[in-house]
Design a protein around this nucleic acid. Structure first.
Length: 211
DNA sequence: CGTTCGATGCACT
DNA sequence: GTGCATCGAACGT
């Protein structure tokens, strides 16, 4: 069953926690891809310096100010689309960034998409990627799922992009600082499923190749 | 093992 | 003109 509006219309940290283990589904031109959410980050309100709502309302962050249960997709580093789900009531700008999935349906399509574009570089990733690498990281997962700016403002109660409720298997969740950002790192608003190989890496600053 | 750096596009000041 | 909620090859130690 599809997650309903009431699921998203709650405190963002609760939504973030409850998203782990649910299944993100995207239908594009009849091609269906899906994966179990294993890592997310919460971005909450204008007082959160890392939230896109921090500067106040702009054209770009408008979806954050709208009703819950919509997608907020934006382009980052000129290369990657990142997908969020809008939470809390209208006028309370907050969202959860989907950072990693464990692929479930459409794995062959995902591998093809990853091998294709490789924004920027001339190298060709996607060859010989393990399943758990296909959607590891927010930029990687949108590429594998075929999620683009066209999905911005998409209603998550529609047929195109939504989250399917899973009869949740018990998972141990770990909370920690959000990664890849310069401010707001003191807020432990990243959640992920412990030990899952599809969970993405560590802060770019300090860490090495990792994983 | 570790760190650096380029590719790229758009919103915002 | 500046600065990103990234990614991974390439190079240094």
């Amino acid at each position: 069953m599809k997650l309903q509006r009431a699921f998203y219309d709650r405190p963002t940290l609760d939504v973030a926690r409850d998203l782990i283990g649910q299944v993100l589904v995207h239908n594009r031109r009849g091609v269906r891809t899906s994966g179990v959410i294993v890592e997310v980050e919460a971005y909450v309100g204008e007082s959160d310096p890392a939230c896109h709502a921090a500067p106040g309302p702009t054209r770009r962050n408008a979806p954050l100010y709208g009703p819950p249960g919509y997608a907020y997709v934006y382009l980052n580093y000129g290369i990657h689309c990142l997908v969020n789900v809008v939470t809390e009531g209208q006028g309370s700008p907050a969202a959860v960034l989907i950072r990693a999935l464990e692929p479930r349906e459409g794995i062959a399509v995902m591998r093809r998409r990853r091998a294709r574009a490789a924004p920027g570089r001339s190298f060709q990733p996607g060859r010989g990627l393990a399943d758990y690498e296909l959607c590891r990281g927010p930029g990687n997962l949108t590429m594998a799922m075929g999620i683009t700016l066209a999905e911005n403002y998409c209603d998550l109660l529609g047929e195109r992009l939504y989250i399917e409720q899973e009869s949740a298997p018990a998972q141990r969740l770990i909370w920690g600082p959000r990664i890849g950002i310069a401010v707001g790192t003191e807020r432990p608003w990243r959640v992920y499923a412990e030990g899952n190989p599809a969970v993405s890496g560590v802060p770019r600053r300090t860490a090495s190749g990792r994983r």
